[in-house]
Amino acid sequence: MSALVKLTDVSKYYGNIKALEAVSLEVHAGEITCVLGDNGAGKSTLIKIISGLHQHDAGTYEVDGEPVRHSSPREALDHGIATVYQDLAVVPLMPVWRNFFLGSEPTKGRGPLRRLDVRTMRETTRSELLRMGIDLRDVDQPIGTLSGGERQCVAIARAVYFGAKVLVLDEPTAALGVKQSGVVLKYVAAARDAGLGVVLITHNPHHAFLVGDRFVLLKRGAMAGSYAKTGITLEELTRQMAGGSELEQLSHELAREG
């Protein structure tokens, strides 16, 4: 099966700083590719390239086998790549239904009478969220009044509804408690089961291992490893994430004397 999204030796430079060097990854339909790395490992840069906010300087970026160069998030969206950012997924003061359709609002009528199809927008929001298992009290409430997990779920449901083929999730569980994280991971799995390819960016190996099919480890802008689920254990993943040998050295340094 060919990959939905394939990055080969992609690099990105900011001036003379190498933000990302020779990173390769594949995303297949119905699979979850996890990108793991510590702060500053290049996760954000990678996500920005995939979602079209930045362009890569070297290597190839293919969607469905076609080399692409997205100049805006809109272009990436048109290619079926939807990104759910950690904190910028929604506009807090706007009602849920307005947020759900933001940027792709359905309209009816012509010319100066062209107007939002408010009825459809409300009903679709409600039913789509219900389909993802989110039973919202009121689609008119400002989305800022939802919990962090619920907001993530709305953003995921939105991407699924708008026919995303690839879902890019930027640290969806970073700011959440244990229970909320579980809920979000359930929706991530639901999106996968719906046939989407998912890129899950995280620094939590436990969350990654729960749902991931492939793992790409980043370290200081470069690839530190790439594994299939069968090729690595949680212990190994955790050890690599935690810094591997560096951690051993740290524990040595922190050890009490005497």
Partner: peptide
């Protein structure tokens, strides 16, 4: 309240980065 432009006005004021990210 009833047009796409209106939705965008609320969005660019309430969260310009979020709005840009969803294609506004």
């Amino acid at each position: 309240l009833r047009t796409r432009a209106g939705n965008w006005i609320f969005a660019v004021g309430g969260g310009a980065d979020a709005a840009r990210a969803v294609g506004v």
